[in-house]
Amino acid sequence: MAIVYTSAIFQGTEIQKKQVQKYVSRRSQARKKYRRRSTFGVGKDGEQWVDYLDRHSLEIQDLMKLTRNKRRFYQQGIRAATLIRSIS
């Protein structure tokens, strides 16, 4: 359990360094005193998000064919997923 926890914290720290946290979890609000997600949560959610993209890539590509105006956001998300994959 300690190894998994340490790994998730390491991945969360790297995700925050590469500034792709906004794709994995919600941002904190300006008036809030505490962050919404811990470093552990960001690392764990980042891995789950990349796995989801891998599993459903064909469906996502079909949706992108239907909504061409969202292609730029899709490409930004794919770039973020590539950066997250390079961490693990």
Rank of each mutant, 00 (worst) to 15 (best):
G43H: 03
Y5S: 03
N69F: 10
Y74K: 10
R55T: 12
H56P: 00
I3C: 01
Q75C: 04
S28G: 12
E14V: 01
Q61P: 04
Y34N: 03
R72G: 09
S7C: 09
S38A: 01
R26N: 11
Q48A: 13
D51N: 12
A2I: 12
V4A: 07
I87D: 09
F73R: 08
E59H: 10
L53V: 06
L63W: 12
E14H: 08
R35W: 05
Q19P: 02
T6A: 09
R55A: 15
Q76W: 03
K17R: 15
Y74T: 04
E47S: 13
V20M: 02
D62P: 00
S38V: 07
Y5W: 02
T82D: 04
L53C: 09
G43A: 03
Q61I: 06
A2W: 11
R79M: 13
S25I: 15
S28P: 04
R36L: 14
G46M: 01
G12C: 07
R72M: 07
Q61S: 05
I9V: 15
Q19I: 08
W49F: 15
S25H: 09
R31H: 12
V42I: 15
T39I: 15
R26D: 10
L83F: 00
E59V: 09
Q29P: 01
F10P: 01
L83Q: 07
K33G: 06
Y52D: 07
D54C: 07
A2Y: 11
Q16M: 12
